[in-house]
Write a protein that binds this DNA or RNA. Sequence first.
RNA 1: GGCGGCAUAGCCAAGCGGUAAGGCAUGAGCCUGCAAAGCUUUGAUCCCCGGUUCGAAUCCGGGUGCCGCCUCCA
Length: 465
Amino acid sequence: MFIYDSVQKTKLKFESLEEGKVSLYVCGPTVYDDAHLGHAKSALVFDLLCRVLEAEGYDVFFARNITDIDDKIINKAKELGISTTEIAERYSASYHQDMAAIGVRPPTLEPKATESIDAMCAMIQKLLDKKHAYTIRNGDIYFDTASDAKYLTLSNRQSSENVSRVEKVSEKRNDADFALWKAVHDESVSFDSPFGKGRPGWHLECSAMIERYVRKEGTEYAVDIHGGGADLLFPHHENEAAQTRCAGDHELAKYWMHNGFVTIDGEKMSKSLGNSFFLKDALKAYDGEVLRFYLLSTHYRSDFNFNEEDLIASKRRLDRLYRLKKRLFGLSSPTVETEFRQHLLEALGDDLNVSRAYALVDELISSANEALDLNPKDKPYRQILLSSLSAIEEILGFGGKNPYLHFQFGLNESDKERINDLVAKRTEAKKIKDFAASDALRDELTALGVSIMDTAEGTFWEIRD
RNA sequence: GGCGGCAUAGCCAAGCGGUAAGGCAUGAGCCUGCAAAGCUUUGAUCCCCGGUUCGAAUCCGGGUGCCGCCUCCA
């Protein structure tokens, strides 16, 4: 496995801290609204990484947090007149639902910030003890960035001179110093701590939760891989790394992975543009699996420009896989190790080269169709083929559904009944060679968005995009 | 202003020094009552200029054009 490390800016051979085991921590969402396509992309990328690592035989411990306390959650709660807990629960649930819809498996562990306050306090205390943090008069606790010689080395920034846009607090020792703990003096949401009532700083959450839930004693790094969106490199990950190295005797992550951004029709996602922003909206129009296939189709480090035209092209590519599955429908056989699976892992093992993996899938489909055209009854061949297809499902996470249902997205039972009825009538007309009637029926079906295909096994239909 | 990324056929997109994967769309053929599906086939010298090299889309220098981060953010 090779991984591009976004700190060293080079592709590295992956060597886990502990033989056969991988610890992966990914920054999860702040649950104050529904998940958008960017959340989906990030979740998909690391879901794929997990699948590949597991397929390579690693025992993967994957943690992805939920930030369930934050100013934005508080604001949303005020806006809707309900508690922050309700907000967090509502959007955690919708996050889980949306991610499941695109085939993102749940992480091994999903720590919540509000359930980890003690871990955060413990870390703050360490930082205070080691003089890497200080308290100002109002009770806020800040990280002293000047006390960490390695500060800014993660994101490769020269000095903190240009990092001056964070809030100006006159008592801060350095402009770049960030809050570890914010004291709360009014009635707003707060947690009790040895430092008084307050709320934790966002950057602290991940460091503390990694330390508490993921890290094994004695390792040089807290985790093997730390991931997240490209925007998190600075300041979030820079700050996390600083906290971890200053509070303990180890660095945070051996490998850093950052996924690219999702734009929509070339524009940065924004609510004001009113474009298909939320994943749940995209899921109304397209099958979750189609969205998975599409969002995963380009390299994870590249920016991804989401648009419907490309999505449809992508769906057509996935359709080919399902048409092949239709040809094999009803067959089952024990899964055997295939060369194809090896090739797939080889491609994905190269810093998740999905394009190469997809090309392999395409080539598999073409050669399979060709072979089945020549010799439809070749049993050993079909067994290998079915095994290859299950490798696609296992590693890439698509292609596992009933192939007929894939082509019936968005239809209810009465729609299907009506279509089946028309198809049956057309078959009757064809039987008596009344082609005028059968063509008229096909036109009717076409008008319904249904495409007809006559095969040796009978007539099949698909809903078209 | 500082830091970083990208530029490959109509579109999406691999490629990491040896003479351009794959998909969508398009044209043609086979198959079909006709279609659809499937199969075969059709097309780029890689933003521009210069350099290194026997050889560069791939390395170096200089342009041009997009984009991201530097503020909460996947």
